[in-house]
Nucleic acid binder design. Structure first.
Length: 236
DNA sequence: CCAGACGTTGTT
DNA sequence: GTCTGG
DNA sequence: CCAGACGTTGTT
DNA sequence: GTCTGG
């Protein structure tokens, strides 16, 4: 699964990386970056291809347009790639509402025992911004305000990720990013772009439990955990 | 046809 | 909205 | 994902 | 235990 992430860069860096721009009013009203602890329901800049490439602020957790209540969104933070074509929940989004989720890391917790979990930060080896394949939708609340929301597609874990978890987010090869949000692709063509990112191009760092708290959000979260006597048995 | 669901994860 | 179940 | 709350009534 | 909030 993928339930927490980071994008520790500024808006300007994001604009340069994707050659796309923010809406000025979004930046004035919100201040989404940098974010050291992106959690479900929080607002994140998402890249879409509507009237040109631009970043749209969206809440993490897909709220389908027909939902009566936005609460469903906080559960719909991931979509398994294996089920995308079979589930009405996601199928229409896969057809016409694909998006890129820019991140520079994500967090996973390795379960040691029922009540013991250790957080890890996973990055690409170049430590740069990468894109995760996502889906989005628009939902109207009872005031008539439009709420954008997104979900992150997950794949079976690659060899590196298997050490801590059996799923991983669908990180896209940079060459596949623009295709993923291209409207001319069929659903099947878009699915062909999704494959586990190579273990050799990723690396992970054990963190302290500071990151557990959603309210914690600063560079101190990224400091690697001090090795302890239990650490040596983590991957048995 | 209509009615009702629509999701993932982890844990047991 | 769209799919599944009956 | 984890952390934290989980409720109703009447009165001001 | 289960749901909500972030």
């Amino acid at each position: 699964m993928c339930g927490r992430a980071s994008l520790t860069k500024q808006e300007k860096e994001l604009e340069q990386r994707f050659n796309a721009s923010f809406y000025t009013e979004d930046i004035l009203r919100y201040n989404p970056l940098p974010n050291f602890n992106l959690a479900p329901t929080q607002t994140h800049p998402i890249l879409i291809m509507e009237n040109g490439k631009h970043f749209q602020l969206m809440k993490w957790g897909l709220i389908p347009s027909w939902a009566k209540d936005e609460k469903i969104g906080s559960k719909m933070i991931n979509a398994r790639v294996e089920g995308l074509l079979e589930k009405s929940f996601f199928k229409t989004a896969l057809q016409s509402r694909r998006c890129l989720v820019p991140l520079d890391g994500f967090y996973e917790w390795k379960t040691i025992q029922a009540k013991t979990k250790i957080p890890f930060r996973i990055q690409t080896t170049n430590q740069e911004i990468f894109s995760v394949a996502g889906l989005y939708d628009l939902w109207k609340n009872n005031k008539g305000e439009v709420i954008y929301s997104f979900t992150i597609i997950t794949l079976p874990a690659n060899e590196m990720m298997k050490k801590i978890h059996d799923r991983m987010p669908a990180i896209l090869d940079p060459d596949a990013e623009l295709l993923w949000i291209d409207h001319s692709l069929s659903m099947n063509q878009s699915l062909e772009l999704l494959s586990p990112y190579p273990s050799e191009l990723m690396h992970m760092t054990e963190l302290s439990p500071l990151v557990n708290k959603v309210s914690a959000n600063g560079p101190e979260l990224l400091v690697p955990a001090k090795r302890t006597s239990t650490s040596n048995t983590l991957f048995d």
